[in-house]
């Protein structure tokens, strides 16, 4: 990797990227938040959720997979893109069974936090109410597929960070779901409660058992400030 700086703009703001950085990474370093769900620091980007969609020289691209290039004109926080992201988040909600009111991830869930950030009070699309399987066979880990958004973070984290292959996708289209590498369920895999794949889940789909609501309301990750606030810095502060 060279030290050559790559200059481009996001919403008119000048950004300098290092060679090999994606638009999302360069933006984050510069204090610009690009909303994302399937992206996680330390994992190969997948470009799966499309929440990070930006316009690069006018073309829609996922910021998490788009390498920064000199002279790019990137649009991020525009009404059009906000609307598109709202729609994507909305569809993720109605496609699963996301009941925040009794979900222990509530207040620390990235999907819910994005919905709050984008002002989604209720979905505009009809709920699909899919029938999804639970897997409680592991002594320390619980899978609730009702809350899975197929971001694939657990799939990648298991392989890239844990050196295992516990999770993968099966099925296609609306039947696509997360599977584990044992027919009898997660309890038969080499998944451990210490696996980083468990922490990778942005929603309440992969949970450590018996933790539940140990963190009181008011002290949960997104109780204090909206998601992305820790990244955002005004341009003047640079």
């Amino acid at each position: 990797m060279s030290d050559r700086r790559i200059a481009f703009t996001i919403d008119g703001r000048k950004i300098e990227a290092r060679a090999g950085q994606t638009v999302l990474e360069a933006a984050e370093e510069a204090g610009v938040y690009v909303p994302r769900l399937c992206w996680m620091k330390g994992l190969t980007p997948a470009g799966a959720c499309r929440v990070c969609t930006v316009r690069v020289n006018g073309r829609p691209q996922s910021a998490c997979t788009q390498p920064a290039a000199p002279g790019m004109i990137v649009e991020n926080d525009t009404e059009e893109l906000r609307e598109l992201r709202r729609d994507v988040i909305d569809m993720l909600f109605v496609e699963g069974n996301h009941f925040c009111m009794f979900c222990e991830k509530s207040g620390a869930c990235e999907l819910q936090a994005l919905a709050y950030r984008f002002g989604i009070a209720a979905p505009k699309y009809p709920f699909m109410f899919p029938r999804r399987e639970l897997d409680a066979s592991h002594p320390d880990i619980f899978i609730d597929r009702n809350r899975c958004i197929l971001c694939g973070r657990c799939v990648r984290a298991s392989q890239e960070l844990d050196g295992k292959h516990v999770f993968d996708f099966v099925g296609r289209g609306r039947d696509k779901r997360i599977a584990v590498d044992a027919e009898a369920g997660l309890g038969d895999t080499d998944c451990a409660a210490t696996d980083r794949a468990i922490d990778a889940c942005p929603t309440g789909s992969l949970l450590r058992k018996r933790v539940g609501f140990a963190v009181p309301v008011g002290r949960r990750e997104f109780d204090r400030q909206p998601i992305g606030s820790d990244i955002e810095r005004p341009a003047a502060a640079e």
Binding site: M101, F102, E104, A136, F142, L207, V211, G212, F213
Partner: peptide, 14 residues
Amino acid sequence: QGRPFWELPVLVQR
């Protein structure tokens, strides 16, 4: 039925 037990206090109060 099927829900994990630690969820119950928050679930059933609904």
